[in-house]
Design a protein around this nucleic acid. Sequence first.
DNA 1: TTGTAAGCGTTATCAG
DNA 2: CTGATAACGCTTACAA
Lengths: 362, 362
Amino acid sequence: MTKSRVSIKDIARTAGVAHSTVSRALNNNPLISPETRARIQSLAEEMGYIPNAVAQSLQTRHSDTIGLVVASLSDPFFGDVIEGVDEVASEAGLSIFVTASHNDPERELEVIEMFHRRRVDGIIVAASRLSNHYTARLKRIRVPVVLVNHQAVEEQTLFASVAVDNHRGAWLAVNHLLALGHTQIGYLGLGNRQRSDQQRLAGYQDALAGAKLPLPVQYVLIIPADVVQASGDVEAGRIYFPQLLATGVTAIFCYNDRVAVGALLACHQQGIAVPKVCSLVGFDDIDMAQYITPPLTTIRQPRRTMGQRAMRMVLDLLNEQEVENQLIAPELVCRESTRRCVKRDMSNVIRNSYREELCHQK
Amino acid sequence: MTKSRVSIKDIARTAGVAHSTVSRALNNNPLISPETRARIQSLAEEMGYIPNAVAQSLQTRHSDTIGLVVASLSDPFFGDVIEGVDEVASEAGLSIFVTASHNDPERELEVIEMFHRRRVDGIIVAASRLSNHYTARLKRIRVPVVLVNHQAVEEQTLFASVAVDNHRGAWLAVNHLLALGHTQIGYLGLGNRQRSDQQRLAGYQDALAGAKLPLPVQYVLIIPADVVQASGDVEAGRIYFPQLLATGVTAIFCYNDRVAVGALLACHQQGIAVPKVCSLVGFDDIDMAQYITPPLTTIRQPRRTMGQRAMRMVLDLLNEQEVENQLIAPELVCRESTRRCVKRDMSNVIRNSYREELCHQK
DNA sequence: TTGTAAGCGTTATCAG
DNA sequence: CTGATAACGCTTACAA
């Protein structure tokens, strides 16, 4: 930690007072005389005194720290969440411990217990994978925990949470497509995102049902969890997109922007024109979405805001205030990857678009 | 921090031993008899004992934590760095405090002092803006500090560092362009990145000098710092690119990928074909670089590795080992945004490419 | 092998 | 207003 730092006692000694007096002076305790306070404070400054937060924590029984677990640190999605948390935590004078769970529930639990050992004042978990399986060990945690976009269904009652309204987002996406005249709309889902995938699927289905449209089973394609884990979202989307397109859909709602980027890649490679042959909608509105060609219509999650909200929730919990779970409304961002449906002869789609692409390249 | 936790003394009491015995048993001290150790350990487990890391830190005088400051948490660049740091820190059993400096040297210093108060064992600063101006206050810090891609020139001696070789990267980029036959090559720089911008510019100039090519002043365009701060890298690139292209260059080396993305955007908007009319090279190899159209030739910075190295350096420093500053070699990633130079009549470039783009679109 | 006691750097409760 | 003194929860000589 450090060698020979100057402590409150050292100051006391050279000032010829008791160390408790120094403590009071430094904390602007009103009981202290203005003169001694000034004297002590400038002395402390001179001597290069830096308070020991560890000792303070031990005594005051709070550490002014919180623990933050995210599924992945390299994923920009969580970067935004972290930023939001950091903003309000810094404002409140709290420091943040951060680490990645890599989507491993076991590791997630270990991390939480580590935070507990460090006596953090609160814990935020983004994309939690914890299920009821762990509740026993979790019950021990005497600290406010709030979940951001949790993946397990059962935790709602145990912990506070803020989550995007996946159902609503999917509903918005599909209705946008319906408004453009599409009637054959597919869903390209991700099997390793249990909860959110189910919710987006449900939103998709409800939107279709609302339009009284039939829903052939082959219009829904959930990419197997192991494939996604192994190849990543983009690659998974690229590989599975053709299979879904072949069912005859004219538009596809993708689980997220990365899957949509993968689909777009497949289109570029195989000469399929987007949105002419197939409209594409993503989810999240990651940075890339607006810069790729064509720019992606997507459902925006206000990630920074979600981080802020989660942190405020922790703060409220620390103040013994009641909090209620928050469902964040996502928002449709309309760009060029979607457009009016054009009736087309399915048998020629691929061939035609291939021709287009060839001329396109030269 | 927490209410009524079970402590080592509670265990001692119910076990009928001294609390020091419990401490030893729990720490697998060899002096303890196997029986009592087992008894104590299982008792601790039953009672739900969780060691208090704060108290341990106070006693052992090290906290097993490090502080990490990055310029921005929402920038994926730093996400990768953080991930690298997290990997080796977790491995070594250290927890990470993280926060953003928002490129503000004053804030950066405050954060460092806060980390100091928390008695972290080491500090890593990514994209540090600290200059000699602050050395006085910095000297107090008794803790290993390592800088990642620091922007101030003078700190090298005060702190250890790992940084990408900007000069080399620029040199690689420009030589790639030269090899493709380009002789009129521009540099689109960023005025708010003092150090790295200068280094990349120097690498660019040296490469050109090495090829014995003239270097008209107008081929170098550094975007003013205030514009970049206000609009962001992408937008800055988009706005300033046309001005540089108008000087007659056939290829442009951009400060980073985001600037290059901005340039690409300008091209799409104005119907300028890339790489046909103008080749583009970026720097960093951010995620987006490979997915935009055309994919970006760029200079890859191994960000995660840099995070890992920085963390290992901290570990070495903690072991009293000597470390030396590391200059990381970046690597050319060749993609479709660059290609052989085509001699062209400058007066028609814009008009021609416009025509191309129109046919392109339909 | 175990217990006793001191101390890490603070804050907090008493007296004075 | 200020000074002793006792915690906070733990590790670690030093004794027994």
